[in-house]
Design a protein around this nucleic acid. Sequence first.
DNA 1: TGCCAGGCGGGGT
DNA 2: ACCCCGCATGGC
Length: 305
Amino acid sequence: MKLQYLKSSILEIPENYNFHLTASAYNFSWFFNGKKLKIPLKYEEDNISIAIVEQIEDKKLKVDYYSTSRDVNIQELEDRLIYYLGINEDLSEFYNLCKNDPLLKEVPIGLHMRSCDPWTAFLIAISQQNASFRQGWYMLYRLYKYYGKQVLVGNEIVILLPKPEDLIRHGEKVLKDCGYGYRSSIVIEVAKKIIESKDQDTRRLLKGIKGIGPYTYGLSCVIAYRMYELPVIDRWVKGLYESIGIKDVDKYLKSAFGKWQGLVTWFLTIVLDAEPLSKAIERVKRNEIKPKMTGLTPLTIWKIW
DNA sequence: TGCCAGGCGGGGT
DNA sequence: ACCCCGCATGGC
């Protein structure tokens, strides 16, 4: 399927917004090549819209909109792009709180979490269940690569995740092939619920599904809806703070970061390159709490995969 | 090889 | 409220 060029526009970015870092984080090579960011904005049956974004000046992004359809509401696409890139969110309060945190005090300024649609966010979240960063992202990589939908944007290929309908048609085996293991049936369950309740908020239907606990729910909502007030505490985050003498991690994050606590997990993986817990603890002991970006890390997935 | 890893739910105490 | 186990894979 080929998307047609629609139009270009210029987007102003604020002071303290780092486009390169923001585009780099947790991204695959078919979305980011170090310069151009290709970002899916709409993905329906026969209506796919994708923007190609590139920084052309200090505070200016050039955006090219592509779509399978001629009848497109550009304003809607632009609003979504701004939301996905986090261009209008003010993280200054969060960054100030980081200065007082022993693990996040050297967090890179100007990096924002990219948001995406709820289905993608859910797949990212469940891929991390009981798995290392590498294993989780390898599952997702295979899901894109082997069962995703390739589309042509200009003359470059972008891969989109299989939609709920696609996965149900293919069956659970497809997920097993990608390494999802026991998570496969949970994904299928969510896919079914999403199709059944088209109009319903994805957040609500995630709640009642067996296999989705506070971590998967919280991470999904942090990514898709920027609900930073939700705690996202796993063994990794817990272990890291415990290793520096903070006993009640839940309480600490709530009191130190309040409505920003959900972002802590995401940024922690950035500064520690998402290394497995024991290695991450060693790094903290050596006070190496800035991203190194050697090998496969959240900021380098696009270079490797 | 066997054991652990960004979870979770069920069953035990 | 807690503790413990199995769950399916991949990586070492």
